[in-house]
Amino acid sequence: MALQEKAIILDDNGIRRALTRIAHEIIEKNKGVDNVVLIGIRRRGVPLAERLAGKIREIEGREVPIGVLDITLYRDDLTTITHQPVIHKTEIPFAVDNKIIVLVDDVLFTGRTVRAALDAIIDLGRPRAIQLAVLVDRGHRELPIRADYVGKNVPTSRKEIVSVYLAELDKQDKAVIEVDTA
């Protein structure tokens, strides 16, 4: 697969501003951050959750706990793909019962990852609420799922690929639309 960049959705400043706004929205919607926890979906949801926690610390002066969720075991396509994806650890070092969980991911597309994440969290306990924060919502939902916090809504074609690059993993910050030229 050869990917060619077609358009930039968010550059580094765009990502920073979007996360700042989402942090404010999380605080506003939940009237503070009592009982709020952030859970990043592997992989790129994890650095995004860490950055949101940093912003919330700057704004509210409070630490919100961060968890890491690997949804592989809950995927609905395990019987149709030929090779099993490698499973990584889920690390949620707190009880989820009665917490307000903000799930964090980079791109919201079909909604299937979020469906898997919801099932995975509910197997860990009974949270008071689960909210969803994404950096990019590109449409084409296949399930009745929507985000509570969106960095940017972008209309896309199904054939296009939306990729988020983050400095923690990819040495740079940007969200782009790519096309497969192969």
């Binding site: 395990l78 793909i81 090779h83 099993q84």
Partner: peptide, 12 residues
């Protein structure tokens, strides 16, 4: 999981 988890790799 590794033997029975993903489709049927050995038949593909």
């Amino acid at each position: 999981y590794l033997l029975a988890g993903g489709g049927n790799p050995h038949e593909t």
